[in-house]
Amino acid sequence: MSIKPKQLDRIKTALVILFFIFVSLLFIIPFYWMLVSSFKPTGEIFTDSLSLLPKNPIISSYTNLLGTHFLRWYLNTMIFAVGYVILGLFVCSLAGFAFAKYKFKFRNLIFIVIVAAQMLPIHMQLIPLFIMLTKSGIVNTYAGLIFPMIANPLGLFFVRQYMLGIPDDLMNAARVDGASEWQIYYKIILPISKPALGAMAILFSLFAWNNLLWPLIVMRTEEMFTLSVGLSTLIGQYRPQYGMLMAGSTLAVLPIVLLFLKMQSYFISGLTAGSIKG
């Protein structure tokens, strides 16, 4: 009995598909468990961890969250994300535009210094930043959280690369029409650069949404925590609140996943540009 090439092809296809279904299921497990555990009493999460569905689903983990500063953490995180995106994109795109489209003294030197700074991990700046913020009194404020992040070399670099591809003729035509350089930036360059700005907006907001170390150092009181810092306190030594932690995690992940499903390409180009780890 011999297998025809066509049948072999089908078998291969079936095997590859089965493989990816298996892998996909493995990768979904953590999300599934997060969701299921958010409806289980904390005791049941560990002792009865094999039940695919909660025996007696409860929503108290969600309602208990309201007893913490959870909503405030959510709001803080949104303020961080929006503030960082608006200010960061403005500052980075304006400078990126200058580096891409104008000739000026020391242009290349300044650019190299900026990009080289990106290679140093933020960890070496954490202590100095903490001392500076504390002494200037903006520790534990939104300004203290956002300002040090705004001049992002990666954002500058990415936007500049994109703007290099915009033809100079467009700008010259506008100049003939009497546009100022600011108008060229604001009315021509910015709208054309939307894909690059969108990618960076995703990168910046995911940092705001997910990073732990930075807000952990800047935000010192519970009502100023971001989601990451707030959720991390629920796992504390004295009374780990796994049910609430899972409920809070579900609520924190949800908007990101929904947004991702709606605008995948921005997410992928933003994250592959940023390759943020940690």
Partner: peptide, 10 residues
């Protein structure tokens, strides 16, 4: 896309 805080918790 998931926060490492959440990943570690789960």
């Amino acid at each position: 896309l998931t926060s490492l805080v959440i990943a570690a918790a789960v």
